[in-house]
Design a protein around this nucleic acid. Sequence first.
DNA 1: GTATAGTTCGAAACCGGTTTCGTAATGAGG
DNA 2: CCTCATTACGAAACCGGTTTCGAACTATAC
Lengths: 339, 339
Amino acid sequence: MITIYDIAKKTGYSPTTVSKVFNNYTDVKEQTRQTILQAAKELGYLPNAHARTLTTKKSWTIGVLFVESSGIGMQHPFFSAVIESFKQVAVSKGYALMFISKDVGGKQSGYLENCKIRGVDGVVVILSDYEDPYFKELLDSDIPCVVLDYETSQAHTLYSDNLEGSLLAVEYLYSLGHRKIAHISGGINTFAGSKRVQGYELAMTRLNLETKESYIVDSAYYSIESGYAAMVQILDLQDRPTAVFVAGDHLALGAMRAARERGLRIPNDLSIVGFDNIELSQYITPALTTIAQDTALMGSKAADILIHSIDNPSQVLESAVLPVRLIVRDSCSSVTNAP
Amino acid sequence: MITIYDIAKKTGYSPTTVSKVFNNYTDVKEQTRQTILQAAKELGYLPNAHARTLTTKKSWTIGVLFVESSGIGMQHPFFSAVIESFKQVAVSKGYALMFISKDVGGKQSGYLENCKIRGVDGVVVILSDYEDPYFKELLDSDIPCVVLDYETSQAHTLYSDNLEGSLLAVEYLYSLGHRKIAHISGGINTFAGSKRVQGYELAMTRLNLETKESYIVDSAYYSIESGYAAMVQILDLQDRPTAVFVAGDHLALGAMRAARERGLRIPNDLSIVGFDNIELSQYITPALTTIAQDTALMGSKAADILIHSIDNPSQVLESAVLPVRLIVRDSCSSVTNAP
DNA sequence: GTATAGTTCGAAACCGGTTTCGTAATGAGG
DNA sequence: CCTCATTACGAAACCGGTTTCGAACTATAC
């Protein structure tokens, strides 16, 4: 491995001067700078990030804390879309992304511990379970964090306007003539899930619609199976709804399947609105009407906030709620006048 | 930050001895070991990975080189599934994953350069374009690499039996009575794509079926749009096939849409077999019959191979081809006897 | 009591950089 | 020609660990 000492030896300058060249110090003559740069190129010198980090305390590494309960991890389309967008701006600013896990080498140790050992400059957090004590431990620390899809006063936060999304969905169904609108929730124990339920309830009362308790069925996960089970429950109702607002596209997929198996046609017999606008939603039949989150914006904005916070360790916490939009496709129809 | 020097000061032992405790040296008395461990716990000591890496030359970090041409990166379901599985075993063995990018801080520099600067112990590579000169540069280096979905004599490799997959697909269609079977390729410039074409051709000749040139249409990417365009081309053919083996599920999605828009019913008028078994494929209607790769196995095996290669830097290159299997769903039907 | 072997510990060098601070060389001004 | 301010450079300490090697100390054998 070529070090600055090798360059120093070759050029006759000291390691100090060589270091200064790479750090753009002004107190080095232009000519010597060129000489050193030239020698570095000839020798194929590459800086050693670990050595630099050791002295500067800056690793140019951002930790990615990215866990979701079902364990599919990176395969989760929403999560991975956000991280991909995050990564692009982080890389452009010189940071590398490193996955943070709970245990290192088989030994359980916690996220914070890992972050400290690895010396990350900041962490972007995207979890499905924000009750995790190891996550809280990280939050309580002084490592800059931006947490997504969650609300807390302890870190920078960024989330979509889930409430508004629910309003859009329910109002849209209302505008189509639906009055009996049910909701399949994505788990009120999750931040987004609870916001979406809230939004549903708010919309219903605003529209002067009765919010029956039986019309809200809570599914534990955002999985297709959960959606299926939830829809079965709804279809067994005495007073069946004409439309269902489902808190996630995966859930909606399962819900649609359940409806179909019961012989219901979508959208003719039952209208469905999803949430998330995952890639699949446009390719299924009928294409799913859904609420889209701006994952690209969330990722890039998260990176901006985090990096800014790393550069300026001020106390002010930034927080933003991102706009959502309704994407109308084919899974909803006007309610017929026929009984 | 608490260092071993702090522990040394507190316990009265030397930093050397403290270090030895954490590295399980045998020449330290059990009692002093306990004393030091106790002090470490009380002080909240955490090792500094960068300092350790600096001397040991081992970073306990594995680089993830993960790019695909359409730029969706992590959102690619196959890629992300493999990496997720890879990550699990890597983490369990004490490694952290770090994304390797081509440029650092806006400056283009190449993968190899990044790997060296960051001092990764090895790299797992999964690309759609293996012609990238920066990738070749990495291959030529002495950094342990395991490359997925590709074949090369310069690194450990791991890929699915694409050829066999094509055979399975075509033979299945044949068994259903199809004789006019077309193929939408996923780009012969990609490793998997070319293998799948080869497999298609091999199957056709084995079955004594004529392989018309017009029956193979090459699509540049594995995108839905490409599949759509390719299918349009096929449907314009004089002698239209009764079945199409499509080299990717995304392509198949586009192909199915094109067929549907032309008024063809699947599977009644046209049978389709896909490749990859992405999550969507089971939820579309008709559910897609496809060839499944074992992504979990690929990821975990890749990790095993790479880590073994890091631990034993021998010259022998491992290579494995992973089994695929046909997943029969609803997108194929027997060919009718009617003309 | 001495020789020998085994146990336990620490001094010091090293990994590859950064940064402070001092100094020599250079140039400007009078 | 002398003073003073700049400019250009380097010695040395430091970041937080690891590792070699020698020394001191203890235990065992004779």
